[in-house]
């Protein structure tokens, strides 16, 4: 059985990629749906062309807020320390009592 922490870590990596795709879609959709027309016909928000406002000004706070929600909801704290058998150099690192679900046969 693989290291149980990996299951959770992989789930979190997938969620991260989903957030990345979300940012990509937000960025693309706002910039090109609102910005591909003629500059004469642009609408403006706070004096900025609306495509720019949505993609660049609003984009990163929105993704930060979503990250905060997602991290709170789905990310789990886990011990990162190594198992008592230690690494290959065998200098016996700091073992501060993580769960030791590992058996190795190197």
């Amino acid at each position: 059985m693989a290291d149980k922490r990996y299951q959770q870590a992989d789930r979190e990596a997938l969620i991260t990629l989903a957030m990345y795709v979300f940012f990509f879609v937000w960025w693309t959709a706002s910039a090109f749906a609102l910005g591909s027309g003629e500059p004469e016909e642009y609408s403006y928000v706070l004096g900025l062309p609306s495509w720019f406002f949505f993609s660049c000004i609003l984009g990163y706070p929105v993704v930060t807020l979503l990250l905060w929600l997602v991290v709170r909801r789905f990310f789990k704290d886990m011990p990162l320390d190594t198992d008592p058998t230690g690494g290959e150099t065998g200098q016996g690192g700091a073992v501060t009592g993580g769960p030791a679900p590992l058996k190795e046969g190197d």
Binding site: D3, R5, Y6, Q8, A9, D10, E12, A13, I15, T16, L17, M19, Y20, F23, W27, A31, F52, S55, C56, G59, Y60, V63, L67, M78, L80, D81, T82, D83, G87, G93
Partner: peptide, 28 residues
């Protein structure tokens, strides 16, 4: 400026995709 904003995910992408496995393995 639009192009520069592609770099916004730098920190969360690096940490989210590699972070925990790397931290666990780095210690091991």
């Amino acid at each position: 400026v639009l192009l520069a904003m592609i770099q916004v995910p730098t920190a969360f992408l690096t940490l989210g995709v590699l972070g925990k496995r790397f931290a666990i393995l780095g210690r091991r």
